[in-house]
């Protein structure tokens, strides 16, 4: 028998043994239909309930806002803790639970716009805050399930719109 045949046969056997070892751990040899599995997963998700990311219950949000508004209604300019509470409420209204530094920076600017640079006179705070909160609520309703790429742009647009609104309120 020519040597070359022996070598080829040895290689073939090695290849087959290796394939058998690998395929031996495989219980099912049919190809995996990824599209079908994903479609099935999506059907099951829809049949249960739409799974929104980081959903927040309305009562929790309302509770935070109530505390904030009660504080304002007393005519006291918010302490750092209350500002943090307002910020938290705004995050929740926007449906955000996790945010990167850029989004935090934009939202912080929004909060600073809301706070204003001067301390408002007692008695005007509550009304202003209510109007602002209503306005933010309207915006948040327009923000659908947020898109990974567009969120920062949307927030920047929101910030601009809030600024314009404040200017028109002042005038």
């Amino acid at each position: 028998m020519p040597t070359i045949t022996v070598v080829d046969t040895t290689r073939t056997i090695c290849h087959r043994v290796r394939h058998m070892i690998e395929s031996g751990t495989q219980k099912d040899h049919t190809p995996v239909d990824v599209e079908a599995i994903v479609a099935d997963i999506r059907r099951r998700i829809q049949s249960v309930e739409p799974k929104a990311e980081a959903t927040v219950t309305e009562p929790a949000m309302d509770e935070d806002l109530k505390v904030a508004c009660d504080t304002f209604s007393g005519g006291h300019w918010p302490s750092g803790g209350v500002v943090a509470l307002i910020r938290k409420a705004i995050y929740r209204m926007l449906g955000l639970k996790e945010f990167n530094a850029r989004i935090v920076a934009i939202l912080s600017r929004i909060v600073s716009v809301l706070n204003g640079t001067n301390v408002p006179e007692s008695g005007t705070i509550l009304g202003n805050q209510h109007r602002t909160i209503n306005m933010l609520n309207q915006f948040s309703k327009r923000l659908d399930q947020y898109d990974d790429v567009k969120i920062a742009e949307r927030l920047a647009a929101l910030e601009e719109e809030i600024k314009r609104k404040r200017v028109s309120e002042k005038s």
Binding site: V32, V38, I45
Partner: peptide, 19 residues
């Protein structure tokens, strides 16, 4: 992943959770 059958893909959080 579709050609190989070697995994799954997600378009949003609901997909990620499900997959």
């Amino acid at each position: 992943v579709v050609r190989s059958g070697g995994g799954l893909y997600f378009d949003n959080y609901a997909d990620f959770d499900g997959c």
